[in-house]
């Protein structure tokens, strides 16, 4: 790979990462956020792969490639976990519309008893 190619891949990885980051900041829907995280991850993996391919000699550096493999597995796990959690949140908050009304009468319920009425942080 020529030096220019190398730079192009590295710059592209930066762009992909930032696109993911931007979407993470502006998207409200959980599913889109999870996808944004995956795009960010792809940016990082592209960066590492590009890094490994630039070594002198015929064989690319195996260490960043192994790192990418590790990273991909982690990211698959994270996506699976995030999707399950997102689905559970959706289920519970749907059900919650009913219990929301109950909360004022039966406020001693263990779970809703500590529902966050914090003054900040809920904005995002």
């Amino acid at each position: 790979m020529t030096e220019i190619d190398h730079r192009v891949y590295l710059a592209a990885s930066a762009i992909v990462f930032v696109i993911g980051f931007y979407s993470l900041l502006v998207q409200a829907h959980v599913l889109r956020r999870i996808m944004a995280l995956n795009v960010m991850g792809s940016g990082v993996f592209l960066f590492l792969i590009a890094l490994g391919s630039q070594t002198p000699g015929p064989v690319p550096d195996p260490v960043p490639r192994a790192m990418v493999l590790t990273g991909i597995v982690v990211s698959v796990c994270a996506t699976g976990l995030a999707l399950a959690l997102a689905d559970r949140v959706q289920d519970t908050t749907d059900r919650c519309e009913i219990s929301e009304a109950n909360r004022h009468t039966a406020s001693s319920d263990r779970k809703s008893g500590i529902e966050a009425e914090h003054s900040e942080g809920s904005a995002s």
Binding site: E3, H6, R7, F17, F21, L25, L51, P56, G57, V59
Partner: peptide, 29 residues
């Protein structure tokens, strides 16, 4: 606008960093 300006700053910093990386990285090959 806020997310956009954060992202632009991030992109600028990343490009700067990426450009300054050694062209023949040491690596562990």
């Amino acid at each position: 606008w806020m997310a956009g300006s954060f992202s632009v700053c991030l992109l600028a910093a990343l490009s700067w960093a990426v450009w300054s990386l050694p062209t023949a990285p040491k690596g562990l090959t």
